[in-house]
């Protein structure tokens, strides 16, 4: 399974990078989102995956008695997901605003910042 996930991570990265190199701004943003997903999955995999052992202390005890999934990657990813929402929203609005001024979403045509 780990191999499959590693391949998926590679695909997410490759697809994200290919998309941010395109001329369309919408593709650029979709690429950024895919890259973010790839990074999250990478962090998750690096924390080692295990089934059915959430990092939650059982009700009747005060410490873990069994094995448990690594909580740190999860905390990191949770933060990253929320922050990337803010980032994506801002990027999307920037695209929209830029489009209204330049009437194009072709990045090759927006080569000077002075027009904005």
């Amino acid at each position: 399974m780990e191999i499959l996930l590693a391949v998926t991570i590679g695909l997410l990265y490759a697809a994200g990078i290919f998309l941010i190199l395109r001329r369309s701004m919408v593709r650029l943003i979709i690429g950024l989102i895919l890259l973010g997903n790839g990074a999250n999955l990478l962090i998750f995999l690096l924390g080692r995956i295990s089934k059915g052992k959430p990092p939650i202390i059982p009700e009747d005890s005060k410490v873990f008695t069994d094995l448990y999934a690594d909580p740190i990657p999860q905390a990191l990813i949770l933060t990253a997901i929320v922050i990337s929402f803010g980032l994506q929203a801002y990027a999307i609005i920037l695209v929209k605003r830029a489009y209204r001024v330049t009437k194009t979403d072709d990045l090759e045509e927006m080569i000077t910042t002075d027009e904005l």
Binding site: A6, V7, G10, Y13, A15, G16, L21, L42
Partner: peptide
């Protein structure tokens, strides 16, 4: 060209994740 760069980096990320495991 873009595809080569993208696939190259993607493959690297796969290798890194397997190596770390």
């Amino acid at each position: 060209l873009d595809g080569v760069v993208a696939i190259g980096i993607g493959a690297l990320m796969s290798i890194i994740s397997l190596e770390v495991l």
